[in-house]
């Protein structure tokens, strides 16, 4: 008899049908959309769809596996950094255009159901402050970190090493705060769901926050475990002070 508990998580391969991959983990759908894949996927494999949409199949498979399994870790050296920063930028855009408006909309619904309650007023304030910090963090990455990838072949990289090291250290700290604050928000809401409240509304809010938290953790994994070590190495910076 098959031991279900010892069964290894199956990795996604380029030959797998994309519809099967998404059927196993529907959360990957938003990742696929970010690559511009949406309509008419039919029975095509990941590789076939990548070919049609001019996407690097190996890179897409690495991204899908990273989001699909926390145990999976792509070969750091083989990841194309330009593709990675492009994907991370698209993820930022997804947060700004989809996730954050959705959270605001759910908060608005809570306000309508529980008007003038201290819980909702305080949660709304916390969420606004969190979103402001997230925007600042996204801006910091897009201005100070991602452009470094384009400068790797530049002869002046040694001069920038000090600033780069400082910025990368700041990035680690920001990631820690962004993840912790969203996890705290989830915990506080769970602990304070009022009696007689619209439970579906709280469920939707918690589910969205939880999904967002997981995305943040996976996003930070790409940056902290792939992008940052590669940048440290390529800029010739000692990585000992940057371990998370």
């Amino acid at each position: 008899m098959e031991d279900l508990f010892s069964k290894k998580h199956e990795l996604i391969h380029p030959d797998d049908k994309l519809c099967d991959v998404l059927g196993r983990n529907i959360d990957l759908l938003s990742i696929v959309f970010r690559f511009g894949i949406s309509a008419n996927m039919g029975q095509d494999s990941v590789a076939e769809i990548c070919l049609k949409n001019r996407i690097d199949a190996d890179f897409l498979v690495s991204v899908l596996n990273t989001y699909d399994s926390t145990d999976y870790f792509p070969n750091t050296d083989s990841v194309n950094l330009a593709l990675l920063t492009d994907f991370l930028t698209k993820t930022h855009l997804h947060h700004k255009q989809v996730t954050i408006p959705l959270l605001h909309s759910l908060m608005q619904n809570l306000k309508e159901k529980l008007p003038n309650t201290k819980l909702v007023v305080t949660l709304e304030k916390y969420l606004k402050e969190y979103v402001n910090k997230l925007h600042a963090h996204i801006e910091f990455e897009e201005i100070n970190i991602f452009p470094l990838v384009g400068k790797l072949n530049n002869s002046s990289k040694t001069d920038e090493a000090k600033t780069t090291a400082k910025n990368l250290k700041k990035l680690f700290n920001q990631h820690a705060n962004v993840e912790t604050e969203i996890s705290d928000l989830i915990m506080i809401i769970i602990q304070h769901i009022p009696a007689h409240a619209d439970l579906q509304l709280f469920h939707d809010m918690l589910h969205t926050l939880s999904h967002f938290e997981k995305e943040q953790i996976d996003h930070a994994r790409f940056e902290d475990k792939i992008l940052v070590p590669r940048l440290l190495e390529l800029f010739g910076i000692n990585s000992r002070n940057h371990a998370r």
């Binding site: 201290k118 305080t122 916390y126 969190y130 705060n177 912790t180 705290d184 928000l185 915990m187």
Partner: peptide, 16 residues
């Protein structure tokens, strides 16, 4: 005890 780590989270808890 609270399962809350950040200062922002602790502030939110204390206000509520």
């Amino acid at each position: 005890k609270l399962g809350i780590k950040s200062i922002s989270g602790l502030t939110l808890y204390a206000v509520i």
